[in-house]
Design a protein around this nucleic acid. Structure first.
Lengths: 147, 147
DNA sequence: ATGGAACCTAAAGCCACTAGAGCTACAAGA
DNA sequence: TCTTGTAGCTCTAGTGGCTTTAGGTTCCAT
């Protein structure tokens, strides 16, 4: 079995590229304590290793999928103390699932309307007078919940 | 055919309740020019009519579904000048549709993972050491795009 | 040795609200 | 009529999650 060479000595820019993050965002994560302060080179530049890369990859994926910084902080805290029971992580995941499902539902309603609008529009290639964009979006029926 | 009585003389709080918006948010929309400044009572309180209600309902639904204030501003501008061709509205709708579809796709991937995690979790109701929440989220395969 | 890219810090700006302080108006009951 | 409580008013500051800007320093290839 071939073992991957460990990744070492990444400059902040390299880390940024590998995780599709902006350099400033990495520094910001350090500032707010999501990423530990890395060692520095003689010239005071940040030098990262593989663990930073993994941690940042985790953060970015979680952010990308809609977890808040606070939720991520909790998850990271849990993963930093892996001998605790993980009902908390479970709770976070469950709460997030509810929200995700709700969002999907509402986005699908919007998707449908946008498609319908674009199709109708093509047919009698129109003027705003006939255009339903605004109507559709002020229509109450679109919003799934009851208010 | 029974014609609805027109809605008149809503206080800002009534408008807020009917549109599920905070009072401050309504004032904020006025400040940034999304809602026109309404007439005032003798005591300097805002008094709204039906058109404000419709306009705000539109804004809220659009916001709720992810349209930016700027996109909404454009749509409202178009609806305020209904004699112009509406290719612009079409463009906005189309751009938004792409984004909506992308978001749905990624949310579905997340939904699937969250469900899988929760299920596994229930099985050997565990400690974080066995817990896949963190693993799953640092895993590259979850992100659809290529980086 | 030098030019340019990449790094550094500190501070301000952005979006879309949200909350707070300190005040005034109005409607309902005693 | 007085009072009391709710809702309104303006103005300012705070929030989350970055992004931008200013004014430098360091690194590396030629």
């Amino acid at each position: 079995m071939t073992k991957m060479a460990e990744i070492r000595d990444l400059a902040i820019g390299d880390l940024a590229k590998r995780t599709d993050t902006k350099v400033q965002t990495i520094r910001y994560y350090e500032e707010i304590g999501l990423l530990p302060a890395p060692t520095r080179s003689l010239g005071n530049q940040r030098v990262y290793g593989e663990s930073s890369l993994r941690r940042l990859a985790f953060i970015r994926h979680a952010r990308d999928l809609g977890f808040s910084i606070d939720a991520i902080r909790e998850l990271l805290k849990l993963s930093d103390h892996p001998d605790l029971p993980c009902d908390d992580a479970d709770g976070i995941a469950r709460r997030h699932l509810d929200e995700v499902e709700d969002r999907i539902k509402r986005l699908r309603a919007l998707e449908k309307e946008l498609k319908r609008m674009l199709a109708e529009h093509r047919d009698h290639g129109g003027r705003i007078a006939d255009c339903k964009v605004i109507e559709v979006l002020s229509d109450h029926s679109l919003c799934g919940h009851s208010h």
